[in-house]
Design a protein around this nucleic acid. Sequence first.
DNA 1: CAGCCGTGGGT
DNA 2: TACCCAAGGCT
Length: 336
Amino acid sequence: MAPSVAIAITRHSSAVNMRALLEWFKENARPLPWRISKVTPWESLLAEVILQQTRMETGLPYWERIRAAYPTPADLAKDSEENLLRLWQGCGYYARARNLYKLAHTLDGAELPTTYESLLELPGIGPYTAAAVASMAFGEPVACADGNVRRVISRLRGEHLTDSEILREATTLLDHQQPGDWNQAMMELGSLVCTPRNPSCEQCPVSPECLAFHTGNPEQWPLRRSTKQTHIHATALVVSGEDGILLKARDGRVLGGLWGVPYAEGDADTQTLLRGRTAEKIGKVRHDFTHKRLEITVYSSPPEDDDILLNPDSVPLATLDRKVLALHKGHQGEQS
DNA sequence: CAGCCGTGGGT
DNA sequence: TACCCAAGGCT
């Protein structure tokens, strides 16, 4: 009998959690644009993609610009990928932009699909984004599990849960009448109250039922991810003349689709990079990715005859390249 | 499943 | 400084 009693209590507690959480959300939700006025499903999808692994304050200006430039997916499909990347530059994880561009072409003028399952088939749309758009834009009762939800649920249960266990629990708790609000409430709670460090349990609407709160050490959940950052020495070459800077389109997965100065990692590639040039070392730039730290030695050289120079503001550039160009500009200032 | 993919802010 | 980690998805 004991197990069924426990289950009954759990279910009852879940219902209490939901009501308290939704009430807290109504009072404390940040005034985000899509909460102030209604947005289209496309605009909702744009927001979710831009906010993947990106903080609200960082992502919001990008959302405003990109939704204004592309009110519909057809508007995006009509434009070039490079123009999208120009609006995306500095936001990071550029595969998101490349996939978004593919998505617009996949639709081929059609409306956005309206269900979790069909959204999931689109490029760049995974379980989180499909659930977020399906619930918020179309009212489908599907739970989404992002980093916030993972943390909130891990602490509620006081367990180190796998992703599928998190999703199962989120689905159990989901309010089927207001799935979009409930998903947002869970994420908002994780973002504002149930923070990774120094959570504000005294302000939490569900702390009475939170096992982590009762242990007095909620920060022990969820498990920390291991992050190993490798250190890499790289070389960048700024070839500048009156007409601009030598820039090339990058390809591959790292900063693919953006443009940048000639760049190399390792001695052999560096020698190739500088071969035939009279290059002067002008300084170092440090740039961190999630899993690697770049120490970039920057060289400057005058253009050769067949170098094609561009205005850096005319092409999409990553922040890494902007840092390199900023160093070069400062060095030029010193020279004159 | 684990590693990879940007950038910026917080501690 | 070094590390964490964000409305994740792809391979």
